[in-house]
């Protein structure tokens, strides 16, 4: 399979739509779970020991809503490229936080898709999962052309041609 074929496959509208729905659904789910328990999420953030104490609560209260908004954006195709950019930025930051604490050897919970106490401690699989999602975000950013989208950077041209 040569490079052109790979590009063609990655650029296929169905592939992009799958990435969008999957990543959007994941962000939506992660956000809704955390909105329900800001205290638990604040503790999860504090355990990473990377954010100044004074900033922990404000992040715990706003980050879930940012996740929900970009999740909805990806699913609906509202500002898809922007949503993909924010996703990539967040996932990059999460990867960094995970990597630092894995290297530190801290036995903390991820706080990714649950704020519950019983979830296991972080391991390298969490980082791989995060990087896979980051790849999806970049895929959407690079290839999305506004399929089944309500808005998007391509919509101006799209309405004229489609």
């Amino acid at each position: 399979m040569n490079r052109r074929n790979v590009t063609k496959l990655l650029g296929h509208p169905a592939m992009i739509l799958i990435s969008r729905l999957l990543l959007g659904g994941i962000f939506l789910y992660a956000g809704i779970i955390k909105v329900a328990d800001p205290s638990g999420f604040a503790l999860a953030i504090r355990n990473y020991q990377l954010v100044p104490d004074g900033m922990v609560n404000v992040i715990a209260m706003l980050l879930p809503w940012i996740e929900i908004v970009i999740g909805a954006g990806l699913i609906l195709g509202a500002g898809t490229h922007g949503a993909a950019l924010v996703s990539a930025f967040l996932l990059g930051a999460f990867a960094l936080a995970l990597a630092i604490n894995l290297a530190r050897g801290l036995d903390i919970s991820c706080g990714c898709f649950s704020t519950a106490p019983s979830t296991g401690s972080i391991n390298w699989l969490y980082l791989i999962r995060d990087l896979s999602l980051l790849a999806m975000a970049l895929h959407i950013y690079r290839f999305d052309r506004g399929m089944l989208a309500i808005t998007g950077p391509a919509s101006r041209g799209k309405t004229a041609t489609d």
């Binding site: 940012i66 970009i70 954006g73 490229h81 922007g82 506004g146 950077p153 391509a154 041209g157 041609t161």
Partner: peptide, 29 residues
């Protein structure tokens, strides 16, 4: 409609949308 047609515009629009989505998320939160 190909994004590759104008990479600079693609990036600018992407950043503008990103800022807007962040603001919307923060406002709702």
């Amino acid at each position: 409609s190909m994004p590759a047609a104008s990479p600079t515009k693609h990036t600018t629009v992407g950043f503008r949308q990103a800022m807007l989505l962040l603001l919307v998320g923060i406002a709702i939160g």
